[in-house]
Amino acid sequence: MPVLELKDVAKEYRQGRVRVQALRGINFRVDQGEFLSIAGPSGSGKTTLLNLVGCLDVPTEGSIRLEGRELSQQTKTQLAETRREKLGFIFQSYNLIPVLTAFENVAFPLELMRHLSRREIRERVEQIMEEVDLVEHMHRRPSELSGGQQQRTAIARALVKEPAMVLADEPTANLDSDNGGAILSLMWQLNQEKGTTFLFSTHDPMVMEYACRLVTLRDGQITEDERRNGHVPGSA
């Protein structure tokens, strides 16, 4: 079963009296473990597509299935539940809760799920913090962390619940190339080790290079869907 499947998906907005067709005839699927990137100029519908895939919005037409579950008819509450259980988000501006420590930020999604004990939560958080190499700093607040460290916290947060898919919207945009590279490397590692599916939306050519699959959007339609060998760090 593919992790994500879109069939004939279209999304229409109303801006005042004008009807804007943001997406039309979108068909594609994502399998487990993929590391893919969606690219396209602004206005291409990239953000809209991500919102749909991220269960933040529903399509006007078509079907979206996440792990076999149909999303297009879900209510707001159901969408929230899906997001809670199945998705991880990483944003360009980290979006960490400033009054919580890194540890607490990462623990937060697990708390939301309510069915884990405190001990379980602690264990999982500690583990993921190790994997992103933040153990030393995990009891600091975001304001006390560097950009790279904050993004790593965000990654840990996205991954701690072992989601079906991680959506990353311009994750490297606020980082310098060294940090950006490190972040990407980390995500690639996690993808390889855990098999977590990563879906990027990006302008950053470095990200696009890493990706194993590049989907290009233009004017609300997929114009390219290219599979290739991603640039694996450390390999030729």
Partner: peptide
């Protein structure tokens, strides 16, 4: 506002 948006994106209930 943004933080709340993020919380909801993470699936926090209203």
């Amino acid at each position: 506002t943004r933080e709340i948006g993020m919380l909801k994106a993470m699936g926090m209930r209203e």
